[in-house]
Simulated assay, not measured.
Amino acid sequence: MNDSAQIETTDGEESTSLYQRILNDIRGKIVSGAWAPGYRIPFEHELTVQYDCSRMTVNKALSQLAAAGLIERRRRSGSFVRSPRSQAAVLEITDIRIEVEALGLPYRYALEQRRERRSQPNDAERLSPVCPKKLVELNCLHYAGTRPFCVEHRLISLETVPDASVETFQEIAPGPWLIGRVPWSTAEHRISAEGADSLMAAGLDIDEGAPCLVIERRTWTADLPVTYARFIYAGVSHSLVARFEPS
């Protein structure tokens, strides 16, 4: 189902714009956190009355939200906001704090820079082809003991996550903040090896040219971009492990 597809109904009165309004209203309440995970969405007949439309139009909107992973539909119980998903098929989406503490080392987070800005042409390559107009850009450092563990560069869409405009990210890293507030439906990881440039070397306290492991992550909620993140680790001290079972 495409958001812009015409919805056929028994009386022919419901339009695409009404379907889109229902979809956007519910999605907006979920993404903003107004409807927390586990919240029961009004029943179909209640939404039919609220929007003065056919039950088929409501059902189509809820089906789209379920397909996007934002809600869970339970037979005879109704529809509920899904809990944020915490892992991808190949690489888990985890809190870097957990990675550090698994090594038996104390964790520390530091925000290096935060700024709000308008998007630029190259942001579309990183975040989404349909790039939001306003972003929060963050540069962060994660420590394991006294040593830098990971350099993080992140973009957050203010159109999808407007609450990011009032969060300073001084006390909490953007990763766990987003996981706790924005249910995501799709994630993409890109993993590469790079030699440290001057900025990477300075951030990780390593020599220029030293091997680094780079993980780039993009996440979406339904068709809306949420965030782009680039994590840089010193290659000599970091590796990725994934365990699989046959399907």
Score class of each variant (00 low, 15 high):
residue 56 M to K: 06
residue 51 Y to L: 11
residue 51 Y to F: 15
residue 29 K to V: 00
residue 134 K to Y: 10
residue 100 V to K: 02
residue 74 R to A: 00
residue 132 P to K: 05
residue 85 R to F: 11
residue 179 I to H: 12
residue 244 F to W: 10
residue 170 Q to Y: 06
residue 107 Y to T: 02
residue 142 H to A: 05
residue 162 P to I: 01
residue 21 R to P: 00
residue 160 T to E: 02
residue 159 E to R: 02
residue 226 V to H: 09
residue 30 I to K: 02
residue 60 K to E: 08
residue 191 I to P: 05
residue 54 S to I: 00
residue 205 D to H: 14
residue 75 R to L: 12
residue 129 P to K: 07
residue 183 P to L: 11
residue 139 N to K: 08
residue 113 Q to S: 12
residue 123 D to C: 03
residue 18 L to G: 02
residue 78 G to F: 03
residue 112 E to D: 04
residue 52 D to K: 14
residue 247 S to E: 11
residue 194 E to L: 13
residue 247 S to C: 01
residue 90 V to P: 00
residue 8 E to R: 12
residue 164 A to D: 01
residue 24 N to H: 10
residue 204 L to G: 13
residue 201 A to F: 10
residue 88 A to G: 15
residue 44 E to A: 14
residue 169 F to D: 04
residue 217 R to C: 10
residue 18 L to Q: 09
residue 66 A to N: 11
residue 15 S to Q: 11
residue 121 P to S: 12
residue 110 A to D: 09
residue 108 R to E: 14
residue 153 H to S: 02
residue 116 E to Q: 12
residue 79 S to F: 03
residue 163 D to S: 11
residue 190 R to I: 03
residue 41 I to L: 14
residue 247 S to P: 15
residue 144 A to Q: 06
residue 127 L to Q: 05
residue 3 D to T: 11
residue 221 T to C: 15
residue 121 P to R: 14
residue 134 K to E: 14
residue 219 T to E: 11
residue 116 E to M: 12
residue 49 V to E: 11
residue 19 Y to I: 00
residue 144 A to C: 06
residue 241 V to Q: 05
residue 241 V to T: 07
residue 188 E to L: 07
residue 124 A to T: 08
residue 142 H to N: 08
residue 96 I to G: 00
residue 44 E to P: 01
residue 239 S to W: 06
residue 172 I to C: 03
residue 239 S to G: 12
residue 121 P to Q: 13
residue 194 E to F: 03
residue 126 R to P: 00
residue 33 G to N: 03
residue 35 W to R: 04
residue 77 S to G: 00
residue 109 Y to I: 04
residue 137 E to G: 00
residue 114 R to V: 00
residue 48 T to K: 15
residue 197 D to M: 01
residue 214 V to P: 07
residue 235 G to F: 08
residue 210 A to F: 07
residue 232 I to K: 03
residue 158 L to H: 03
residue 187 A to V: 15
residue 128 S to A: 14
residue 205 D to M: 15
residue 197 D to E: 09
residue 115 R to T: 01
residue 243 R to W: 00
residue 37 P to K: 02
residue 235 G to I: 02
